[in-house]
Design a protein around this nucleic acid. Structure first.
Length: 517
RNA sequence: GCGGUCGUAGUCUAGCCUGGUUAGGACCCCGGCUUCCCAAGCCGGGUACUCGGGUUCAAAUCCCGGCGACCGCACCA
C-alpha cells in the first residue's frame, strides 16, 4: 500500500475538519487559490497575531493597510511592469519553454542590460542571428511571447486606465512613505509593516498552500540612514546561530550550510547588513516558535541572477517539508534606496529624510532592509510540524497561542443535568473571551480524539462531582494528564495559561486515573 | 504549456480491463440507547460515479473533448 506523506494526511484532515481546501471546488476548482475554513482562518489570525507580538511590537514597527489594486504607473515606477514580464520562447521540436533573455545571455553573450531593451521581434532576430538553438534538443524556436505575471485590470470605465493587483505589499509602504514618515515624526530607523493579500499570476501553481496566485504576505520595510546602519539591538541575538548556504559555495554545487553565529556572520561580512542579520535571527526564532527545529531550517543566499531586481543581497529562509523538501518561508533583502528613489523620480515628490549635524545637515533617501514572509506557507508549516501520532490517533500539537480552538467543554454523559451544567460552563468561558468548542456526541474518548485532531489544547469535562462541588476536569492534549479545578477559578487560571504564564499542572490538582477503561 | 498518472459520499477507496450490481467497504458525521474519562458496543440515518458529447437496447465502466489534481520538465520576478 502506498505510504501517505504528511501533506496528504494534513490535506485530508484539513478538508474534513475545516482548516483549508482548494477554492471553487463546486465549479471544478482552479489551482492557485485556497479557502481557509473556520479553523484555518482562526489559525491564520492567531499566527498573524503571534507575528505581531513577536516581530512587530518589540521593534515598534508600524503597521499600515493599503489597497490591493495599484495604478499602472506605480508599478512601472517600481520596476515591476518591466520585470514581471518574461519573454519566453518555445522549442518547436521538444516543446520546452525557455526564458529568451536567459538564452541570449548564456549562449549569445549578451548582457542583461542589453537583453532588457529588446522587443519580442528583436529577440527573435537575435536568436536567429546568433544561431541559438534549443539547448536540449537543438530545435528551433517558435515566436517569442511575453508572460506577464501580474494580474492586470482596468480602473473605472476607461480601458486605458491600467491597474494591477499588487505582487507585493511593500509598494504600498513605499508609496505612502512620506505620510508615514511624517506621522512617525521623522524618526529613523523606522519599521513599517503590511500584512495583506497579494496577487501573482503563476504560470502553473501546484503544491497546494505553498504556491498560490493569491496569498497573504507580511512585508516589513525597515528604513535606515545609509550612513548610520548600525543595529543597536544586534546584541540581543548575537549568539544565535544561523545555518547559511552561501552563494560562493552554491556556485561550487555545495549546498552544505555553514553554521555561524550572528556576530560572526556580521563581523566576517557574510551578511553585509547588521539589521538584515538581526531580522534573520528573529525569523529563525519565530520559526522555532512555530515548531520547526533549527536543523530543519536554513538560509540560502541568492545568486546575483536569482535576486529580485531591487535586491543587492538576499537570503531566503527555508524550512524542510516532507513532500517538497526545502521550501522558502521568508525572504530577506537589502533593497537599498531603490524603491524610494524610483518613486521619487517618477512622482516628482521628495521622499528624502533630513538629518542635522555639526556641519549643517544632509538630505538622503533612506535605505531599506526587508524581511518578507509568506503567511499561508507559515500556516501550513505550523500544521505539518504540529502533526504527530499518539496511539494511532492524530494529534495536532499546536502551541497554545496558535491553536484555533482553545478548549472544548464536554459533559461526561448526556443526562442527569450534566448537559445543562456544561452549557453554563461553556457560556461562562466564551464570555471571558475564550474560543470554546462544545461536544456532547459520542463517547468521551471519541470527543477527546476529535479535539486532539484539530489541536485543541484543553478539554474541560463536566462530571457528577461537578454537580456536587463545582469542580471540573481539565485534560491536557499532549500529555493526557488531568487536573481538577473549581469553575470559579477557571477564568483567571486560563488567561494566565494562554499567556504562557503558567503550565498545565498549575491549573489545578493533578489527578490519577486508573488504567482500565 | 509539454509528458506521465489519475478523478467514485465529508475523507480514503472497491468496482472499470471483460458495459447490465439496490455502486460495496472503511473511516467520518448525525440521532437514539448505553456510557463516571481516552476513536468501546448496539440500533437507526447521511452523502458519491468531475463535467459535456459520442458509441450502445444499456455507460462509473468503452471513445473524444473540457475542467481539475498529482509527479517530472519548464516557470516561481
Amino acid at each position: 500500500m502506498k505510504q501517505k506523506d504528511k501533506y496528504e494526511i494534513i490535506s485530508e484532515m484539513a478538508k474534513r475538519r475545516g482548516y483549508f481546501w482548494p477554492s471553487y471546488e463546486i465549479y471544478g476548482g482552479i489551482s492557485g487559490f485556497l479557502t481557509f475554513g473556520p479553523l484555518g482562518s482562526l489559525l491564520k489570525k492567531r499566527l498573524e497575531d503571534k507575528f505581531r507580538r513577536f516581530y512587530l511590537q518589540p521593534l515598534a514597527i508600524l503597521e499600515i493597510e493599503t489597497s490591493v489594486i495599484m495604478p499602472g504607473n506605480v508599478l512601472e515606477a517600481s520596476g515591476h511592469v518591466e520585470n514581471f514580464k518574461e519573454p519566453t520562447v518555445e522549442c518547436t521540436k521538444c516543446q520546452r519553454k525557455f526564458r529568451a533573455d536567459h538564452l541570449l545571455q548564456e549562449f549569445g553573450k549578451m548582457t542583461d542590460t542589453e537583453t532588457e531593451k529588446l522587443t519580442l521581434q528583436d529577440i527573435m532576430d537575435e536568436l536567429k542571428n546568433r544561431n541559438i538553438r534549443c539547448p536540449e534538443c537543438g530545435g528551433t524556436f517558435s515566436k517569442a511571447e511575453q508572460f506577464m505575471t501580474m494580474f492586470a485590470t482596468t480602473i473605472g470605465p476607461y480601458s486605458d486606465s491600467v491597474g494591477y493587483g499588487r505582487p507585493e505589499a511593500a509598494q504600498g509602504i513605499f508609496v505612502e512613505f512620506k505620510r508615514i514618515f511624517e506621522s512617525a515624526r521623522g524618526r529613523l530607523p523606522l519599521g513599517v509593516a503590511q500584512i495583506g493579500r497579494v496577487l501573482r499570476n503563476e504560470i502553473s501553481p501546484r503544491q497546494g498552500p505553498i504556491r498560490l496566485r493569491e496569498f497573504t504576505i507580511i512585508d516589513i520595510e525597515f528604513f535606515l540612514d545609509p550612513e548610520d546602519k548600525k543595529c543597536l539591538v544586534l546584541k540581543e541575538v548575537e549568539n544565535e546561530t544561523l545555518r547559511l548556504v552561501l552563494a560562493e559555495n552554491k556556485m561550487k554545487d555545495n549546498t552544505e550550510p555553514v553554521t555561524v553565529t550572528v556576530k560572526e556572520a556580521v563581523s566576517k561580512g557574510i551578511i553585509k547588513e547588521e539589521w538584515q542579520a538581526y531580522f534573520m535571527a528573529l525569523a529563525k526564532r519565530f520559526l522555532v516558535e512555530l515548531g520547526v527545529p533549527e536543523e530543519q531550517q536554513r538560509f540560502i543566499e541568492k545568486l546575483e541572477w536569482e535576486r529580485a531586481h531591487y535586491s543587492v543581497q538576499g537570503f531566503d529562509q527555508e524550512v524542510y517539508l516532507e513532500r517538497w523538501g526545502w521550501t522558502e518561508v521568508s525572504g530577506h533583502n537589502y533593497r537599498t534606496d531603490y524603491d524610494l528613489s524610483r518613486h521619487m523620480k517618477a512622482s516628482g515628490v521628495d521622499l528624502t529624510a533630513f538629518k542635522e549635524s555639526e556641519s549643517g545637515g544632509r538630505r538622503f533617501v533612506p535605505h531599506v532592509i526587508e524581511p518578507s514572509f509568506g503567511l499561508d506557507r507559515l500556516v501550513y508549516v505550523a500544521l505539518e510540524y504540529a502533526y504527530t501520532k499518539r496511539n494511532k490517533r492524530t494529534l495536532l500539537s499546536l502551541s497554545r497561542d496558535l491553536a484555533p480552538i482553545q478548549m472544548s467543554v464536554f459533559p461526561l454523559v448526556n443526562k442527569d443535568g450534566l448537559l445543562e451544567k456544561a452549557d453554563e460552563v461553556y457560556h461562562r468561558l466564551t464570555n471571558e473571551g475564550f474560543t470554546v468548542d462544545w461536544d456532547s456526541s459520542g463517547s468521551i474518548g471519541r470527543r477527546y480524539a476529535r479535539a486532539d485532531e484539530v489541536g485543541t489544547p484543553l478539554g474541560i469535562t463536566i462530571d457528577y462531582t461537578t454537580l456536587e462541588d463545582g469542580t471540573v476536569t481539565l485534560r491536557d492534549r499532549d500529555s493526557w494528564k488531568q487536573v481538577r479545578s473549581n469553575i470559579d477559578n477557571l477564568p483567571d487560571l486560563l488567561h494566565a495559561y494562554f499567556r504562557n504564564k503558567i503550565d498545565f499542572e498549575d491549573l489545578g490538582q493533578l489527578i490519577e486515573r486508573r488504567k482500565d477503561g
